[in-house]
């Protein structure tokens, strides 16, 4: 069996925050999260703000350390990886974030932004680096004139293309895409999504796509992971998304998503409540205060992620 490109097993991550200015309190941003992304596949992580998506992305990128649990790159546990191996793998896992403006250095011209990772990770050869830069720019649909521009002279769509080009400079295996199109207008967003899809096929790239938008997730993903308050509540293969009996929270997200082409009217009065604060986690199933299908026992026990089929896992007592 081939190893996944990245895998996390039973990840727990807590943060501390100060409440009312004096007392520190810790809470879990991720609880017992496991998933694996294979070569050429896109894992879409769907959920509302605060559910832990970015934290999960950072742990996969090794920008944050979990309290408990293991992270694997190409089948190797990060805890037992030599420095040399680590650095080799490091360049294979790249990221593109929501706001390309803050992730691009404002004092770097595009050419420097692109060459830096190449020099550090591939080789310090200016001629070859520039060749590569021109190649990836044309891949992301930018002309080479932008090489001499600063980020502020680019539009939002162009900046996001530069961020993607930078990731491609080191020929990665997987890119973590954290809300990559959320700051863009619809027509621009679709162009960027189209690029992602293109590269996935062309280079057999894997993605961990993080988004709060159902249409974005279903557009690009092979697998869909739904998170609620730091836990995975459902995992399914995209192909069967329309056909299966979803977790009640996934159903709520589907009902709330304003799909302009849906044959059913949007307003059904089925969606209610708000996500609880991670500081005051509801007992048992964390979704129970908002769940239409809850039973008495739902507030007493925590439902575990259970296998329904090879392509579908749900954490709900009623599935």
């Amino acid at each position: 069996m081939v190893d996944p490109v990245v895998e996390v097993k039973n990840i727990w991550k807590s943060y501390e925050i100060k409440r009312w200015g004096f007392k520190k309190q810790s809470f879990y941003a991720l609880m017992d999260v496991s998933l694996a992304v294979f070569k050429g596949e896109t894992m879409g992580v769907l959920g509302e703000s605060g559910c832990g998506k970015t934290t999960l992305g950072k742990i996969i990128l090794d920008l944050e350390k979990p309290d408990k649990g293991d992270v694997f790159w190409f089948g190797k546990n990060l805890k037992r990886l030599s420095k040399k191996k680590y650095n080799g793998f490091r360049t294979k896992i790249q990221a593109v974030f929501q706001d390309p403006y803050s992730s691009l250095n404002p004092r770097y011209k595009v050419v420097d932004t692109l060459l830096e990772p190449y020099f550090i990770n591939i080789e310090k050869n200016k001629r070859k680096g520039l060749e590569k830069a021109e190649e990836v720019l044309s891949l992301v649909g930018l002309r080479k004139e932008v090489l001499n521009k600063y980020p502020h002279a680019l539009s939002g769509g162009e900046r996001q293309r530069v961020a993607l080009a930078r990731a491609l400079m080191v020929s990665p295996s997987l890119i973590v895409l954290d809300e990559p199109t959320s700051a863009l207008d619809t027509t621009l967003a679709s162009q960027i999504l189209e690029l992602f899809k293109d590269f996935k096929l062309k280079f057999h790239l894997s993605y961990l796509l993080i988004s709060h938008s159902l249409p974005v997730i279903t557009y690009l993903s092979d697998w869909i992971v739904v998170m609620y308050l730091g836990r995975i509540v459902e995992i399914c293969k995209k192909d069967i998304f329309l056909k299966i009996n979803h977790h009640p929270y996934t159903l709520m997200l589907i009902n709330a998503s304003p799909d302009p082409f849906s044959p059913k009217p949007l307003f059904s009065k089925k969606v209610r409540g708000e996500v609880a604060s991670a500081l005051f986690r509801p007992s048992g199933c964390e979704f129970h205060p908002r769940c239409e299908e809850r039973e008495n026992f739902c507030s007493k026990k925590i439902p575990q992620l259970r296998k329904i089929s090879d392509f579908h896992y749900v954490a709900c007592f009623k599935r």
């Binding site: 207008d185 027509t187 967003a189 679709s190 999504l193 249409p215 279903t218 557009y219």
Partner: peptide, 21 residues
């Protein structure tokens, strides 16, 4: 027409056209 076609529909985007504001 561009706005409508570039909205993902059933997991697909019909058409992508030139962008830029």
């Amino acid at each position: 027409i561009n706005l409508i076609n570039s909205y993902p529909r059933e997991g697909k985007i019909k058409k992508i056209l030139k962008g830029g504001v």
